[in-house]
Write a protein that binds this DNA or RNA. Structure first.
Lengths: 195, 195
DNA sequence: GGATGTGAAGTCGTTCACAGCT
DNA sequence: AGCTGTGAACGACTTCACATCC
């Protein structure tokens, strides 16, 4: 809406776009503070900035990819990260030489791929706060343990397996097969659902 | 648990593994039928089969990838699909020749990449029911429209943009930047959260 | 005896409706 | 006059607790 030049937006407009109730929008925003102006609405630019601040997106997050297979290299060349405040500042693999040729040809400039045993050392140097696990599932827990050892507190796990970390660390899973299962369920039961 | 040779499982055990309440597990399962045996628990093999049937995973789902960039080719070589009952039976792109070299070297046998204008025709031939959108966001809605035209009722959208489809079609989004935002939020507010 | 399946109770989240500001 | 912020009403989901059945 900001890009479209809109100056002000009401909770009703936001609700329409998000397919939720207007009171929900107001309650949710009000939970974090008073961002709106009574009788007017919310100033788009201000709201955007406030939401970014609330979500912790008003600064850069430095990330590392661990496991440079197909998914890992896809993430390395995922340009949309740049628009958001995320930056991949390191890539690790168990076998960097094997991987390096495959990856470098896909990106403009060759990407430096380091051996995982340098994770802790490099994490400190480059102030890495988030680790992206893109290894096979069999290695995911080991990698998680290494991230914990390196005091990288945030983990985004793409490997289709459950991993556990100590108190103080946060894991979020990206299991798209789970979403796919959900889709399959909805498709299977669509006819019943419509009655 | 089946692979580990476990024969029977209680709702309490399942609850422990899933970090939820035992009554929740029983209620949720009971919603679909009576799968347990009072005084005993649930037979692992039977429960597994019942859940697969409920979710619609007791058959093969034939899928197509549209957009063979980094993410699309990662999905094409994602072996874990095979274990689950999902199968990618076609890949489309706006420019197959440009893509074909890059992809074929990554997989054992070369993958046939078709021009998107053959989507409808091939969808019928190969009985495709699910489409995976892995194009840039700018093309996502156009691809969704083509999938709808081809009567592919299930869509898994990896492009970071909202797409709309008519009644009768199902879209599920895989926005990992949303999950990443969630992670950033949790990391930002971790200290307050602990108090 | 022991774990399920399930009404009843309890808790949490959503929506309503309007006072309070601009 | 109009839209936010919010207590109160409502509805939905979760948990309890126990009758039921193996």
């Amino acid at each position: 809406m900001d890009e479209a030049g809109e100056k002000v937006v009401s909770s009703a407009q936001l609700a329409g776009r998000c397919m939720v109730n207007a009171a929900q929008v107001r309650k949710d925003l009000a939970y974090f503070g008073e961002f709106g102006i009574r009788g007017v609405g919310y100033y788009v630019k201000d709201l955007l900035a406030d939401i970014k601040r609330i979500l912790g997106l008003n600064r850069e997050w430095r990330m590392a990819v661990i496991g440079v297979g197909n998914l890992g290299s896809a993430l390395l060349s995922y340009r949309d990260f740049l628009k958001q405040n995320y930056k991949i500042v390191a890539a690790f693999d168990i076998d960097p030489p094997k991987v390096i040729g495959r990856v470098s040809e896909k990106l403009g400039k060759p990407v430096e791929i380091l051996h995982v045993n340098r994770l802790k050392e490099v994490a400190k140097e480059r102030l890495i706060e988030i680790g992206l696990i893109t290894t096979p599932p069999s290695e995911a827990q080991k990698v998680a343990d290494m991230l914990v050892d390196a005091e990288i507190r945030g983990i985004l796990n793409f490997a289709p397996t459950q991993i556990t970390v100590p108190e103080g660390y946060v894991v979020k899973d990206v299991f798209f097969t789970t979403i796919l299962d959900n889709l399959a369920y909805l498709l299977s039961n669509y006819n019943e659902g419509r009655r």
